[in-house]
Design a protein around this nucleic acid. Sequence first.
DNA 1: GATGAATGAGCCTTCATTCAT
DNA 2: AATGAATGAAGGCTCATTCAT
Lengths: 208, 208, 208, 208
Amino acid sequence: MNIHSLLKMAKRNHKKELIINAAIQVFAEKGFYNAKVADVARRAGVADGTIYLYFKNKDDILISLFEVKMEEILERFKSILETEESAADKIRHFIQLQFRLIEEDQNLAEVFQVELRQSSKFLKDYHNQKFIDYLNIIGTILNQGQKSGVFHSDFRINTLKLAIFGAMDEIARQWILHEEPKFNLQESAVEVAEMILNGLVPTRENSL
Amino acid sequence: MNIHSLLKMAKRNHKKELIINAAIQVFAEKGFYNAKVADVARRAGVADGTIYLYFKNKDDILISLFEVKMEEILERFKSILETEESAADKIRHFIQLQFRLIEEDQNLAEVFQVELRQSSKFLKDYHNQKFIDYLNIIGTILNQGQKSGVFHSDFRINTLKLAIFGAMDEIARQWILHEEPKFNLQESAVEVAEMILNGLVPTRENSL
Amino acid sequence: MNIHSLLKMAKRNHKKELIINAAIQVFAEKGFYNAKVADVARRAGVADGTIYLYFKNKDDILISLFEVKMEEILERFKSILETEESAADKIRHFIQLQFRLIEEDQNLAEVFQVELRQSSKFLKDYHNQKFIDYLNIIGTILNQGQKSGVFHSDFRINTLKLAIFGAMDEIARQWILHEEPKFNLQESAVEVAEMILNGLVPTRENSL
Amino acid sequence: MNIHSLLKMAKRNHKKELIINAAIQVFAEKGFYNAKVADVARRAGVADGTIYLYFKNKDDILISLFEVKMEEILERFKSILETEESAADKIRHFIQLQFRLIEEDQNLAEVFQVELRQSSKFLKDYHNQKFIDYLNIIGTILNQGQKSGVFHSDFRINTLKLAIFGAMDEIARQWILHEEPKFNLQESAVEVAEMILNGLVPTRENSL
DNA sequence: GATGAATGAGCCTTCATTCAT
DNA sequence: AATGAATGAAGGCTCATTCAT
């Protein structure tokens, strides 16, 4: 591949990204169904038709958006797995990163919050592998914690990873929907992490 | 109010309920945005126009659906508060009831799962008080648990109630989306309850 | 079937016919591809959406138009077959009827002229049976003529019927396209009929 | 005009021809209205924009196509006029050439078949002189035949030339549309010629 | 109250054409 | 001259909503 076609592809990806970022804003504001393709185009500063040079159709914008952004996010989460931390600290770390990302890009979070949920049902034939990969990072940490004896072994990982994600996710949603001034998301992160690790009940005698 | 107008209202409510139940099925299958008012009408066995004798518009079907169904559900949850159980058992009880309701009416659960999330953002001017009431039932249990010293007092109830709801909710969603044969939701209920109460970490020393 | 549903169907067909007749005018003026569905709707005095209560899509208007009008036309042509005329007179009769119909409804003729030709190629999956039926009326006359020894037997009917139709059709097209004052179509009918029957070459005695 | 600009024009015409030939294929396959300019460009191996260096717009491709190809075809037909044949043989000759050309370039025939018909009506301001010239070749033969007493004199040439063209044309269309194996076009040519010359009715005694 | 035919605003998408490179 | 990415007008079609019956 020569320098020329590399440049071309770079430019192409640049415009695709431009549109994706516009779409994130617009979808966050209005929701996927209420957003018009023309809104996305205007926000991206391109003509309506230009969208269709980079995306098959409106659904494809949403799907591509997931793919691209989840890819980036996954990279950041995967790095947690490679640290020397204990499983418990990894959980703490994971939750904190999750909430930091949400604060960093609230619009993206908003799109993921609402539209991600529809995707599995309503975007035909879209199997959201990236989301599964994401959940499996939690799963890997849990597995490691169980193997090393730090975590209870009688919980099924598939249940726990969903519960952990769900707990974070709901707090994230409320934070996003909350009018300014919003509550402190980082503090909530600590609370959630500790609840998950230690539970509501302080004395250990009466466990399981 | 005389007997005649009472009968009239009963009949009126009967048809409204008919439409709401049709809407639950249709919205569950296709999603709110992909469902047509005509689909709901056909499923309810009424004419398109009839819908508008009972509902202001399409949004109003969804909103009314929440109101009516959440009202019923709330009643069932509120009864938990009135038992003599410990706060921990009330949490267990709550989670189990939640999952039982989901199994009982999967379609309704599905609508709540996906569309409830949109409601707060996209159904203009709809303040979902019933959902707040529902969350506050968890809050009341938590409060009672903290006051009686059974639960940690250093967690904020507003964070915890969301985390607990979120954990349940995510598991519910996966269960709903899961192809047959589905995993056992009741077992998951127990796991979630115990994780919430006791945490992932079994050893006493290293709590908080 | 009760009186009520009969009335309903009559009304339904009435509106369908209304739209078809509007479509004939509009397609004749602008051609199928340059005509907008909205043009047809306006001409028919209905809303755009109403069209889609009676027709699947724009193509379907054209196809239905063929079906309905060819049906009517076929009836008129079939009556020729039932007369006691000689095969030669039937040919004359056929040609004259063809040209009379064109004069009667020039717009319809125009649509058939241009768009009928496209139909076989471009309207997917549309097998124009009615046109085949129409051609076969000529075929039947030719067959009868050959059997009774009045017509040459060494011409294949499938060739002849096309040639006869084509000859008429080309004259019809020129007449339609011709600016006013148009040439006399009835006179041309006689000429075409005699040419077909007797040929260009006036062998011996009693020509024309 | 110097050698340099001659070369330039040759090159120019070469690319124009390239595009025209691509257009013939594409228009034949999809029809003028369903063909995209981009399809023609791709088939010609040029960029979309290049088309507009050689043609004013999409309509102009079709018009130029007629002009160029009809010019070539006319030359071949005109040569018939210069032979020493009888008028009857010239008619036979003409019909055979027509059908040979169709077999030689089926795509071109297909374009002429369908799109030629639209041209007079829908390509604004396009007066199809070349087609008139073509028809007049038949007219000239007929005129010659009438003058020499070989053909009936009481048919109007303007009617006959259309009838003859139409007869050929319809057979051509059916042949083009026919699935493989197609019927023998050369045999049909003979049949059509003899029918036109001698008519359907064999013995002259019983004419009219 | 009930109906369902009719409405028409609205939107996704296409594609002929342009123009900076 | 050639390119092809970008444009944006245009139109087919949908569907929530209305209203005459």
